[in-house]
Computed example of a mutant assay.
Amino acid sequence: MLLQLLDYLGVAVFAVTGGIVASRKQLDFIALLFFATVTGIGGGTLRDLLLGVPVFWVENETYLLVCLIVSVSVWVFADRIERLGKPLRWADAVGISAYSVMGAAKAMSVGDTTLVAILMGVATATFGGVIRDTIAREPSAIIKPEIYVSAAFAGAGSFVCLSLLGTPQILAALVAATIALVLRGGAILRGWTLPGYGNKAGN
């Protein structure tokens, strides 16, 4: 049940980010719906295609309904959402936290290896945002120095490790999602980064 909720949450909050980007560009509703839907289901679609399992939103159209509801909500309340302060980045952070766990859990459920499960968690958590930023011609967060992909890696890796240690799935999911959210939240609030590759040629 918790993993199902995380899946819906991941789709919803990533759809919010797509809708926000479209609203900022003053696009029409159909374009906003497109942005929200592609962003919401993008990461999970890549995951399922790579795992060779039925694509989740084809099997359950509720996910598309979630994207539609989010699109209408953003269309009506975009101005209020913007007043919340960094809504795009925080929605993205919640999406990373939920989807890094869900992606890893789904890979483990079909019997894939530990490394594949972690990679699927990272891919699920980041690919929707990459699609969104590419279509919108915006700089992608994954190429910025602050913690982003690393948060997804920490969430997926924590979930996999805790699961292998026998931690109950619900607890493992909550702990892992919290770790990812704290790391990404620290990057948003405090500018947390990991050491980058130095220009050694210039030294």
Rank of each mutant, 00 (worst) to 15 (best):
residue 124 T to W: 08
residue 14 F to G: 02
residue 132 R to Q: 11
residue 121 G to Q: 10
residue 196 G to V: 15
residue 156 A to S: 03
residue 194 L to H: 04
residue 101 V to Y: 03
residue 31 A to Y: 00
residue 126 T to P: 03
residue 168 P to K: 09
residue 43 G to A: 07
residue 154 A to Q: 01
residue 168 P to Y: 09
residue 86 K to T: 11
residue 93 A to D: 06
residue 161 C to K: 00
residue 115 L to S: 06
residue 103 G to K: 04
residue 181 L to M: 10
residue 27 L to C: 01
residue 85 G to Q: 05
residue 22 A to P: 01
residue 157 G to W: 02
residue 18 G to P: 05
residue 27 L to K: 02
residue 196 G to C: 12
residue 43 G to Y: 06
residue 130 V to K: 01
residue 25 K to W: 00
residue 9 L to S: 14
residue 130 V to C: 05
residue 86 K to Q: 10
residue 157 G to K: 03
residue 194 L to E: 08
residue 125 A to C: 13
residue 133 D to G: 06
residue 81 I to V: 15
residue 98 A to C: 07
residue 70 V to Y: 03
residue 193 T to D: 10
residue 51 L to E: 11
residue 27 L to N: 00
residue 81 I to W: 06
residue 109 S to T: 14
residue 45 T to C: 11
residue 83 R to F: 05
residue 76 V to W: 06
residue 99 Y to G: 10
residue 166 G to S: 13
residue 4 Q to V: 15
residue 110 V to C: 06
residue 123 A to S: 12
residue 91 A to R: 07
residue 124 T to N: 06
residue 18 G to C: 05
residue 64 L to Q: 07
residue 65 L to F: 11
residue 9 L to Y: 10
residue 23 S to G: 05
residue 177 A to P: 01
residue 114 T to M: 13
residue 15 A to M: 07
residue 169 Q to F: 13
residue 193 T to C: 13
residue 143 I to F: 15
residue 185 G to C: 13
residue 66 V to S: 05
residue 111 G to C: 09
residue 28 D to L: 09
residue 167 T to K: 03
residue 24 R to A: 02
residue 25 K to D: 01
residue 56 F to P: 08
residue 79 D to E: 15
residue 178 T to F: 05
residue 156 A to C: 02
residue 121 G to H: 10
residue 144 K to N: 08
residue 99 Y to N: 11
residue 53 V to W: 06
residue 47 R to D: 08
residue 109 S to A: 14
residue 14 F to M: 01
residue 140 S to M: 04
residue 197 Y to Q: 13
residue 46 L to N: 14
residue 162 L to M: 13
residue 119 L to A: 15
residue 125 A to H: 08
residue 68 L to S: 06
residue 134 T to I: 13
residue 36 A to L: 10
residue 45 T to Q: 07
residue 114 T to L: 10
residue 139 P to A: 12
residue 190 R to P: 03
residue 46 L to H: 13
residue 110 V to K: 03
residue 86 K to F: 11
residue 159 F to P: 02
residue 37 T to Y: 12
residue 33 L to K: 02
residue 60 N to Y: 12
residue 17 T to A: 07
residue 122 V to A: 06
residue 31 A to F: 02
residue 138 E to G: 11
residue 133 D to I: 10
residue 153 F to G: 00
residue 14 F to E: 01
residue 104 A to W: 05
residue 74 V to R: 01
residue 144 K to L: 12
residue 160 V to F: 04
residue 49 L to C: 14
residue 82 E to Q: 14
residue 77 F to D: 08
residue 63 Y to A: 02
residue 79 D to Y: 14
residue 1 M to A: 04
residue 192 W to P: 05
residue 79 D to T: 15
residue 61 E to A: 11
residue 158 S to I: 12
residue 3 L to S: 00
residue 32 L to G: 04
residue 36 A to Q: 05
residue 15 A to C: 09
residue 102 M to D: 04
residue 63 Y to E: 03
residue 64 L to P: 07
residue 111 G to K: 09
residue 30 I to A: 07
residue 161 C to R: 00
